[in-house]
Design a protein around this nucleic acid. Structure first.
Length: 258
DNA sequence: CTGCCAAGAGAGCCTGACTT
DNA sequence: AAGTCAGGCTCTCTTGGCAG
């Protein structure tokens, strides 16, 4: 999908990108191989050629900072879609819990197969966490733009070539303007009985309970809750990218995307 | 080259929604 | 409560294409 994208070009929006596709310019190679393109002046064609060559170069060496800078946030899903099976593309589904003062208490990183959880006061080591995070190509969250990522940045400095894919705005576009738990139940994604009824507010109480009473059961539940929040993001991503791809390519049946 | 027009990109503002 | 984003709205500006 990424190599079919032109939305990162200067002064390009959805309509101009679609115009290209409709006239048969469906990928970067197609764009570069044409001398002239209708509705693009010679002057701009030259500039766009350079931008596309730069995109190609970045992609070939997996330096995603180019896309971090020029791809609109709401289109970051295209990077995930194109690279999700590439072994050099490392993703973390991420979720954090905090106490009532906004201090990080628990964080889970799910790489698609294995879920690592770090707990304040036990195994949470910010040096190690930083090392782990900065080895990733993309972090995927739900509402992380306004919650998880800013808080995380208080503790660790993240490299600027890490892409952040926030699922919430995408789901809003797809008509799911609601919280994570409600989306899960709409999509039939399950949680264990113990944590099914828990919400964000309860996470604060669980940590409080653990701190006050040293109650291990409270902590265990909080960890379980947090891990589900991270792990369940994966099926939601799969659902969302298929939906948004369908929507993006509506009425363009000749366009087959890899 | 100059002048005009319509399309559409982009900026600014407001609102509503979510996370713990 | 803080922080961020997208959508809706309006207004402005840039641009390609066309005519002469």
């Amino acid at each position: 999908m990424l190599t079919h994208s032109f939305i990162f070009l200067t002064r390009f929006g959805y309509s101009r990108e679609r115009k290209l596709w409709e006239q048969g310019v469906v990928d970067w190679d197609g764009f570069l191989s044409r001398e002239r393109i209708r509705f693009i002046s010679r002057h701009w064609k030259e500039r766009y050629d350079k931008q596309i060559l730069e995109a190609m170069r970045s992609l070939s060496i997996m330096d995603l900072s180019f896309f971090q800078r020029y791809l609109p946030k709401r289109e970051v899903w295209r990077v995930y879609y194109s690279l999700r099976h590439n072994p050099d593309f490392r993703v973390f589904f991420l979720d954090i819990e905090t106490d009532e003062y906004g201090n990080l208490t628990v964080i889970s990183l799910f790489d698609g197969e294995d879920c690592k959880t770090f707990i304040r006061g036990f195994n949470l080591d910010f040096f190690l966490l930083k090392k782990l995070l900065n080895n990733a190509s993309m972090l995927i969250t739900f509402n992380g733009s306004s919650f998880d990522i800013p808080i995380l940045k208080h503790y660790v400095r993240l490299n600027n070539n890490i892409l952040h894919f926030d699922l919430r705005p995408l789901l809003v576009r797809l008509g799911y303007n609601m919280g994570l738990k409600e989306i899960e139940s709409k999509l039939g994604i399950e949680r264990s009985d113990e944590v099914r009824s828990l919400r964000g507010f309860d996470a604060l109480q669980l940590w409080k309970c653990f701190k006050r009473e040293r109650n291990k059961e409270c902590l265990r539940l909080l960890i379980e809750y947090n891990r589900y929040d991270a792990i369940n993001l994966k099926p939601i991503v799969e659902f969302s990218i298929n939906k948004i791809l369908e929507k993006t390519l509506e009425n363009l049946d000749f366009l087959v995307i890899s």
